[in-house]
């Protein structure tokens, strides 16, 4: 599963194909009225197909910016981003995106919110409907298909957003703090379900999160970022079994090691300021 390359910041000329996502010496600079801000500098990451990679770091370190780069919603100031070996030049259709807020359309039921993806892409209707049924069953939304977003809890709304992101079977799923607005208990349940869904779909997942526990439980590798200007501090390989029971994982020595290391890194980088 994980192709164990702890040294992800390898040489820039790594044109090796086969990577799901390749971020190569990327920098992002914003120009505001007062000054130029460097959001990201010298970021190089390589993600293999089917990997689950989490990105953690202090607020404002450019984690979300990284996802926007991969999706093509934002262009790097320098460097290159490649998706399946192709240069990312504009918004990509071969990804699924989940935001912190579910961003559902209030006037559509859960099912029709999921179908929006199919409508925009012009997918055949019958095929889309069948796929929606599959996803609703997979994410535990059965019985809530015809509810409007304002009738759904935060957790259910986020499930709808996840279904919508998975509808077209994207090879890469980008998640920007998807569970950040949920209560702790719901969040744990969603973690368990996301892990299961990832294993069922085999999608490559890039997850931005503030929760170290969430990152380590879910991911094969955790990218730890430094504060602004953000760059990769270290990539942690999570050496936990594929089958991860939530309770057991929390008390596993490897879990303690990985979370401890990340905490050290994040703490060290903040006190170094």
């Amino acid at each position: 599963m994980t192709v164990g390359n702890t040294t992800t910041q390898r040489s820039a000329d790594a044109t090796a194909t086969g990577a799901a996502v390749e971020i190569d010496q990327v920098a992002v600079r914003f120009r505001t009225k007062k000054k130029d801000v460097t959001a990201l500098r010298d970021v190089s990451v390589r993600i293999e197909p089917g990997e689950f990679v989490a990105i953690v770091g202090a607020s404002g370190c450019g984690k979300s910016t990284l996802l926007k780069l991969v999706s093509g919603l934002l262009r790097p100031s320098s460097g290159q981003v490649r998706l399946h070996g192709e240069d990312v030049r504009g918004p990509r259709r071969d990804i699924g995106y989940v935001f912190q807020r579910a961003a559902l359309l209030d006037w559509r039921t859960a099912r029709r919110n999921i179908l929006l993806q199919a409508e925009m892409r012009g997918m055949p209707r019958a095929q889309a409907r069948q796929r929606v049924d599959e996803l609703i069953a997979m994410t535990g939304l059965t019985g809530f298909e015809d509810a409007y977003p304002n009738e759904l809890s935060g957790g259910m709304q986020q499930r709808v957003a996840l279904c919508r992101a998975l509808l077209h079977r994207p090879p890469v799923l980008l998640m920007d703090e998807p569970f950040g607005a949920l209560d702790a208990l719901t969040r744990e349940q969603m973690n368990v379900e996301l892990r299961r869904i990832w294993r069922e779909t085999g999608t490559t997942v890039l997850l931005v999160t503030h929760s170290i526990a969430e990152a380590v439980y879910l991911a094969n590798r955790v990218i730890v970022m430094t504060p602004r200007p953000g760059t990769v501090a270290e990539v942690i390989d999570v050496d936990l079994p594929v089958e991860r029971d939530y309770g057991q994982t929390m008390s596993a020595p490897e879990f303690a090691r990985a979370t401890g290391r990340i905490r050290d890194l994040l703490g060290a980088t903040t006190t170094a300021e």
Binding site: G140, G143, F144, D146, E151, S153, M156
Partner: peptide
Amino acid sequence: QSTIEQPERTAPAGATASATR
């Protein structure tokens, strides 16, 4: 809608808000 009141099959994650549809 008819099947809304029934709770979902797997572990319900915060599904309570939807019970009174």
